[in-house]
Design a protein around this nucleic acid. Structure first.
Lengths: 351, 351
DNA sequence: ACGACATATGTGACCGTACACATCATTGTC
DNA sequence: GACAATGATGTGTACGGTCACATATGTCGT
């Protein structure tokens, strides 16, 4: 019995191995349908001049053979890959990953595929390496989410000539860009604290080399200076909740402040945790504002006052911009999305 | 002056327009380097039989021309796309997006690119549509993260013959799979509550059509039945924090339970929020356990008892499995990753 | 000095598709 | 009923690489 099975398997491989299991090509379809390969092509790309009965017959054969057009061949001859590259940092964060998903959906609807590559570190070599990696795939357009400062240098250096959309709030680049107005978002948050009577406000910023972090910091500083408060140097964080917690522990040793504006919700959560550990109540003793309005923010304790960004909209608009450029749109667009202050319970009047 | 510039520009376009700005091909490189295109190919694919001086010269020209091999052409002739497809649901969640990032990194190191497509809904048509979409790109392998039940049906139906790795804890499929042992993870959580003296435990599950949700539910039921407690039908959730909150509000109307095991950390957070709103203290009045151990879980109030999954490891191992199959590994592997119970402050002895 | 052999380089064919153009079939017009 | 106009289909070629094989060059022992 066992022997039989083994023999069977052996015979199987003997027979199967030499048979080229090549996928059916357009010519196979043509032959079976009794037409020329060009006619098959017409049937597939719903061209004008084809009799509907022919088209039907061809599509039947296509179905029957499980024929799939070879994209590589198509890309080769049309020099269109129908692929958009996305360079993103830290996809594991809520914002970028939400935008990424929206981008993928919008791109798919337009018939594009997304190739993603992410940036764990921010060193220049890694950035160029990822960009090269994407470019080698003949992507037709590039979206950069959550960009770091050096990304722009790398793009310039590599002389990337394809349509490019970035989330750039600085406006200092000549590609199309979509900016959530981080500066005004940060100003809203800061102004809110000032309006509540706070005079000693600390800013827990994101990493210096992130464009968004930089913009939020600038918004904070602008507002603080305008209100003529004394300016404290922001603390540079790394976006993580753990970092927020550690900073919070340090800060409680001094208590020379009554409010903190964190550059994202995660760090705000860490801060609140540390303050509570030290016996400080938020918002009674210290007010905390976050940034992003991730879905959990409303359910933190206390529910977090924060600045909402519409990440889905960001993703959609990025692709809309990119498709515009791919469609031959000449001039660069600078779309703006406005963030919104969401007041919850982590902020209160200064006592 | 102005006129001059305009004239110059006009001439520029006149001259430039007809010139095909085609990217340099391997033959261009060959011509300039004074060798045959085959030699260029050898230089690029570091083949054995090439004089190092020739190779050097060729690579210099490659650099100078900014030549990039056309992947479409290469894919066409080798029928290798060097691309791995990833089908993922709800990338915006921490787990999947973390795994995705790890997958991308691991794949990149092995010289593969990742093409992602995500599944917002779970309807069958959407699934086959996405799979078709991926298959049309001639991906060499497929990874399915956070799979839904119907994904397997779709894969079978579409007769997908490429190497496939799924996160499947059921073991009922014949592809290679990687299973975080969700069942034992859920049992750990449930056992922990039972050990604390809880007798009336509610399970807030994930959506029924998710494999992971199903497995966690089974683990919960197994443990409850084994301990001979009366079995309550789990509540089916949707993974979101808002849903957790609403369920929590409903539950407080009855209070015929002392503990809840939520199928993920977000829903656990929502529950806790609702309980607090109703004047119930966690863990004094009600114990809550989550699942995943997202980075924020340790900083929730109270810090959340939960079951840790190593999402990065999941991503890495998936690719390792897939690369194994791509490398000609014959037999299917079923790798297992064990989750771990992390006890924090959201659970306490039943009073 | 010669063949034997290894090393280095060149040539032809092919992968599967789309485009331009050629050809054949059909229809309407006077 | 001849002819142009239009519709439907077929043929040749190019896209940019890799592979298999052919050829040129160099190295060695006898």
């Amino acid at each position: 019995m066992t022997v039989h099975i083994i023999v069977d398997e052996a015979r199987y491989t003997d027979i199967m191995e030499p048979v080229k299991v090549r996928a059916p090509s357009i010519r196979d379809v043509a032959r079976i349908a009794g037409v020329s390969y060009q006619t098959v092509s017409r049937a597939l790309n719903d061209s004008e001049n084809i009799k509907s009965s022919t088209k039907e017959r061809v599509l039947e054969v296509v179905e029957q053979l499980g024929y799939r057009p070879n994209q590589a061949a198509r890309a080769l001859v049309t020099s269109r890959s129908r692929t958009i590259g996305v360079l993103t940092s830290q996809v594991a964060h809520y914002g970028p990953s939400t935008s990424l998903q929206a981008i993928e959906e919008a791109a798919r609807e337009a018939g594009y595929l997304i190739t993603t590559t992410s940036l764990a570190t921010s060193d220049y070599y890694a950035i160029t390496d990822r960009l090269e990696h994407l470019m080698s795939q003949a992507i037709e357009g590039l979206v950069v989410i959550a960009p770091q400062v050096r990304v722009f240098d790398a793009i310039r250096e590599l002389d990337i000539r394809i349509p490019l959309v970035t989330l750039d709030s600085t406006g200092r680049n000549d590609n199309s860009s979509l900016s959530v107005d981080q500066i005004s978002g940060a100003r809203l948050a800061t102004r809110h604290l000032i309006d509540l009577g706070h005079r000693d406000i600390i800013h827990l910023a994101g990493p210096q080399d992130w464009i968004e972090a930089e913009a939020r910091m600038r918004g904070f500083l602008d507002e603080v200076i305008e209100a003529d408060l004394n300016v404290r140097a922001p603390i540079l964080g790394d976006w993580t909740v753990d970092f927020g917690y550690h900073v919070g522990r340090e800060l409680t040793r001094f208590r020379d402040f009554t409010a903190v504006f964190a550059a994202n919700d995660q760090m705000a959560l860490g801060l609140i945790h540390a303050f509570r550990d030290a016996g400080l109540d938020v918002p009674r003793d210290i007010s905390v504002v976050g940034f992003d309005d991730i879905p959990e923010a409303a359910h933190y304790w206390p529910p977090l006052t924060t600045v909402r960004q519409d990440f889905v909209e960001i993703g959609r608009r990025s692709i809309a911009l990119l498709l515009g450029e791919l469609g031959g749109e000449r001039n660069r667009h600078h779309d703006q999305i406005s963030p919104e202050l969401i007041v919850r319970d982590s902020t209160a009047f200064r006592r």
